[in-house]
Design a protein around this nucleic acid. Structure first.
Lengths: 323, 323
DNA sequence: CGACTCCTTGCACATATGTTCACGGCTCTT
DNA sequence: AAGAGCCGTGAACATATGTGCAAGGAGTCG
């Protein structure tokens, strides 16, 4: 009865699975597991690490339904957005905040993305940080699509965005649709023309059918500028134009004012990010924000109705609701 | 902005939640968490224990879809039943097996039961063991219903079954419908009459509308008899009658033969367990089996089509498929 | 008001877990 | 076939975690 071609999965994975079951479900000690698996305790420790890292073990925090914190409730009331406020000590630096928020988001993202879905993803420091911590989740027929071009005048800029997106597609086993265009065209007409290309139409169609969008907000005029503002994507003149137009931030390099409006912001005609109307049509729109410097930009994005789910560190959340 | 009546949940729970988030999601050390929470490391350790015990932290093992073990596949092929084979060392005693299987089932049961559902539960050593390890899960408007009476000739036997069922209803916050009748009536006519009572009709109706049923199998003729066979529920004469009728086991004190048939087994006319047809109409029917002594009985239950999901220790699973 | 219980806390110790390192078995060269 | 590099292993060490215990604080009763 024992077939020779036994396991369709590697011994190692299978052992990791057993170890995880014994450790996390049956509460055995690693020592005991080592005995059952005829190996050393160290190896069990390593097996379990692997099991966690590869997503075999799924640890979730399930707040009782009455648990949303005061701040989360305030945000829900005021902006009709589901907030996930992440505890971060007040004395943490902005880098710490970003890292910790990114870790949390990376861990929970699997909850939002599944087989047969399309997820649109922006790029930037925040997405970069998130991408570095993703725990893998197996999906089938899933698709990831880049939200906006990443080329700039200095380099193609493709590597940076590319790497980020690839980490996502690897973690979820999803196909990846890249967006090999500059972040901003020089001439709006070029964009219009390019958008008619067949390859592009496929990408734009995917964007139109996204199930989830994942992005942060850019804050061009804060003390801690987003990647896009220091990476050679904008020259001084353009920068000034944004300022003059009353811009407070962007999502996937689409700019908006404090009231959420976008009309008459010249750079948007040349940018490659999705129309905000396209974004708003996406059922789930996850925004990740770390650091108080992004608050003004975040307010604009909220005013524009771009967000359905917000991941935010505690300090910034408090700054947002002003308490 | 800070309301005085801040949290609708206790500080302790809220701290536990924060600690869990920091520990399991953000990978902080307990020492670090202690600092953020302004308490001692010990207390954090205790908070985390509480968080796990109270179901705030949910740890699942997600086998990749290609993971089912060889034995699980064999069982699926042969019996059309989803098996969850639990690793237990071969040298483990039957008591160990039961304990470890029960622990696993208790931990995963939340996956099968949710708000607005009705779960039918039997009683016996196996259910007792499971009930002792349940991790709580909040549900609304959920209902638990006892599958069969627990009174016997020596005592009411109510306490035993009662306690088991109450553990389930507590863990899930579910209403509990008890079944305060003997396990077997002396006279079939009494049962028929009693079944027409209004209180009973409500219970029977619930049984008819169950979403999940949870039970083990009894093995009257094995070396390790189930609770029902040592607790004074059956006298010698009845026992012999079962043997003569070719009975191999029972589910919720409804007896069946090796081929799954039940016709002409006299005791069934006086028993209080659900008609097997009622059971078979239940969408999800979870059977928990530990110990090889139950294999024959389990085969009968499988032949009778009583099971959709089987939790079983590895040794017994191997005995079942005979390899 | 004090004596009592009950619960919580942090310390100190006992365990359990994570990580470094040197070794040995592989495969792939040459 | 010998050598070089590349894992994977377990022993030993370094950390992190769990727990018994004594002390202290809040509530209750006489």
């Amino acid at each position: 009865m024992i077939h020779p071609n036994d396991p369709p999965l590697s011994d190692r994975t299978s052992d990791a699975l057993t170890a995880a079951q014994l450790y996390y479900v049956q509460d055995l000690t690693m020592e005991a597991i080592a005995q059952e698996l005829h190996t050393s305790r160290s190896s069990v420790s390593r097996l379990l690490s692997q099991a966690r890292a590869s997503g075999l073990v799924d640890i979730q925090i399930r707040s009782p339904l009455d648990a949303p914190s005061r701040v989360e409730k305030l945000i829900l009331d005021r902006f009709q957005v589901t907030a996930h406020v992440l505890p971060v000590p007040d004395y943490a630096s902005d880098v710490d905040r970003l890292e910790r928020v990114a870790l949390s988001v990376a861990r929970i993202l699997g909850e939002f993305f599944d087989s047969n879905m399309i997820m649109g993803i922006a790029w930037g420091s925040t997405m970069n940080a998130v991408s570095r911590h993703l725990t893998p989740k197996r999906t089938h027929n899933a698709q990831i699509v880049q939200l906006n071009g990443a080329g700039n005048t200095r380099s193609t800029g493709l590597d940076y965005a590319n790497e980020i997106l690839r980490r996502f597609s690897n973690a979820f086993d999803a196909r990846l649709e890249q967006f090999p265009v500059p972040t901003f065209f020089d001439d709006p007409a070029t964009r219009t023309a390019y958008w008619r290309e067949r390859g592009l139409r496929r990408l734009l169609e995917m964007q139109g059918n996204m199930d989830v969008a994942l992005f942060s907000v850019g804050s061009p005029f804060s003390m801690v500028p987003s990647h896009v503002y220091v990476g050679g994507y904008l020259d001084d003149e353009e920068f000034t134009a944004l300022s003059d137009a009353g811009v407070v931030g962007d999502v996937a390099t689409v700019f908006y004012r404090a009231d959420g409006s976008t009309d008459g912001i010249p750079l948007n005609d040349r940018g490659t990010g999705p129309e905000l109307s396209v974004l708003r049509r996406t059922p789930r729109r996850i925004c990740v924000v770390a650091g108080t410097s992004k608050v003004d930009s975040l307010r604009g994005a909220l005013a524009a109705g771009l967000i359905t789910d917000l991941f935010i560190d505690e300090g910034t959340a408090r700054a947002l609701v002003g308490s």
